[in-house]
């Protein structure tokens, strides 16, 4: 099961991130998880939201370049070694992480980690076999 992330192209200049947030806020879209990758002249904002269709429509309407990306949302215990265990499993099967970001769940002792792998399907297979919980977008939002 994969979660869907929205990626937004941002020029590296002041006010662009604020503009995205303004657009999403006005469209009543709530953000659950967020990360930004930056280079010297542009950035890529990656978000997981409660209503991705609404978010996409609002951003496109405001001339942002956006794409939907499948990512893998993994729930791990928020304890020392939690992430390490997951990465060891993947490393053993030579699955490569393109990028990831993590946050703490509101209602549990777990952490949520969003992964983008070079081979998402294989990663899911590896993780599921090891009994790791993988969440959908909706589940990510509700945690």
């Amino acid at each position: 099961m994969k979660a869907e992330q929205i990626s937004v192209f941002l020029e590296n200049k002041s006010g662009r991130l604020a503009e995205v947030m303004r657009v999403l806020g006005a469209a009543q879209v709530n953000i659950r998880a967020l990360s930004i990758a930056d280079t010297s002249d542009f950035g890529i904002l990656r978000i997981i939201v409660n209503d991705k269709e609404k978010a996409l429509a609002a951003l496109k309407e405001n001339n942002f370049t956006v794409s939907k990306t499948e990512v893998v949302a993994v729930e791990v215990p928020d304890t020392p070694g939690g992430l390490s265990k997951i990465l060891d499993l993947l490393d053993a099967k030579k699955v490569n992480v393109e990028y990831m970001y993590a946050f703490i769940e509101r209602h549990s002792e777990n952490a949520l980690i969003i992964f983008r792998f070079d081979e998402n399907d294989r990663a899911i297979e590896v993780l599921q076999k090891a009994g790791i919980t993988i969440l959908s977008s909706q589940e990510v939002y509700n945690r």
Binding site: T65, S67, E98
Partner: peptide, 15 residues
């Protein structure tokens, strides 16, 4: 200008 055809969620692809 970036468009949806060339945009990617991965920095390295844009680079």
């Amino acid at each position: 200008e970036v468009n949806e055809k060339i945009f990617s969620d991965e920095v390295k692809k844009l680079e």
